[in-house]
C-alpha cells in the first residue's frame, strides 16, 4: 500500500458553518506544511466546491464536488462509495497528501460518518439554531470525535445561553472534546487545528519537499541489530523509535 492521507469528516446541519470552518482551518494547516485536499457533498449546487476553488488557497484540482442524489447521510454512511472514489482519485493525483477533508451535505442531528470512510469526524452546530441542541442528544453531535459549537459571536443576539451550552455539551458528550468557534474572527480555530494534529497527523512528516531523499537516521543500523539481538519482546520498541526517528 502506498502512503494514504488521513481523512476527516465534517458534518452538521445546513448553514452551521462547515464550509466556513474549512476556509478557516485549511490556510492554518497549510502554514504548518500540511498537504490538504477537500471533497464537498453539495446538496443541490456546486456552490461549496466553487467557493473553495474561488478562494484560491487550494489549487482547484484539490477540491472535488460529489453529488449525492439528495441523500447526504447515505453518502457518508450507508453507501459512501462515491466519496471513497473521490478520496482515491485525490490520493492518486496527489500522493503527497497528508489530510483529506470531507464536507457532508447539510443534514440533521442524527447524521454520523462511517469509519470505513473517515478516520475521525467533527460535527458543527450553529449557536443561532438553539442553545438546546446539545441536550437533544443527536447522534451526530454526541458521537462525533470533535463537536464544534460555531457562531459563538451571535449568542447575545439570539438569546442563546453559551454557559448552558458548555455545560450540557460536556455532559452529553461524556468528556469527548468540544470547541467553541467564531469562523468570522478565527476564534477557537487553533483548537480545531490542534485536534487534527493530535488525532490524525501525529507522527507524520510535514512540510518537506516530496523529492527529499529519506535520510536514514544513523540509528537504523543500530536499531535493527538491537531488534535481532533482543528478539521478540522488545520488537515493538525499536520499530517505534525508528518511525519517530525518520519522521522528526
Amino acid at each position: 500500500m502506498t502512503h494514504s492521507a488521513a481523512r476527516l469528516g465534517i458534518g452538521g446541519p445546513v448553514g452551521s458553518g462547515k464550509t466556513a470552518l474549512i476556509e478557516g482551518i485549511v490556510p492554518m494547516l497549510m502554514a504548518q506544511g500540511i498537504e490538504v485536499a477537500v471533497v464537498t457533498n453539495d446538496l443541490l449546487t456546486t456552490e461549496d466546491a466553487d467557493r473553495l476553488k474561488r478562494k484560491g488557497f487550494l489549487p482547484a484540482e484539490r477540491v472535488i464536488g460529489v453529488e449525492t442524489g439528495s441523500c447526504p447521510h447515505t453518502a457518508i454512511r450507508e453507501d459512501p462509495t462515491m466519496n471513497q472514489l473521490a478520496v482515491q482519485d485525490l490520493e492518486l493525483l496527489f500522493p503527497q497528501l497528508d489530510l483529506i477533508l470531507i464536507e457532508s451535505g447539510g443534514d440533521n442531528l442524527a447524521s454520523t460518518f462511517s469509519y470505513e470512510l473517515v478516520d475521525a469526524y467533527m460535527f458543527v452546530i450553529d449557536v443561532g439554531a438553539g442553545d438546546d441542541i446539545p441536550r437533544k442528544n443527536g447522534p451526530g453531535f454526541v458521537q462525533s470525535d470533535l463537536a464544534v459549537v460555531n457562531k459563538i459571536d451571535i449568542a447575545p443576539y439570539v438569546g442563546a445561553d453559551l454557559g448552558l451550552m458548555r455545560q450540557q455539551a460536556t455532559q452529553y458528550r461524556q468528556g469527548k472534546p468540544v470547541v467553541y468557534t467564531n469562523c468570522k474572527t478565527a476564534e477557537g480555530l487553533d483548537e480545531v487545528v490542534a485536534f487534527i494534529q493530535e488525532t490524525l497527523l501525529f507522527g507524520r512528516q510535514m512540510g518537506q519537499p516530496s523529492t527529499q531523499p529519506s535520510a536514514q537516521p544513523p540509528s537504523t543500523q543500530q536499531t535493527s541489530t538491537q531488534q535481532t539481538s533482543t528478539q521478540q519482546p522488545a520488537g515493538q520498541q525499536p520499530a517505534t523509535e525508528n518511525l519517530i526517528g525518520s519522521y522528526s
Binding site: 449525492t68 441523500c71 447515505t74 453518502a75 462509495t81 472514489l85
Partner: peptide, 11 residues
Amino acid sequence: SFFPSGTYTLS
C-alpha cells in the same frame, strides 16, 4: 438498493 455502489446518485 442497499448494496453500496453509488447508484442512488444517478438519475
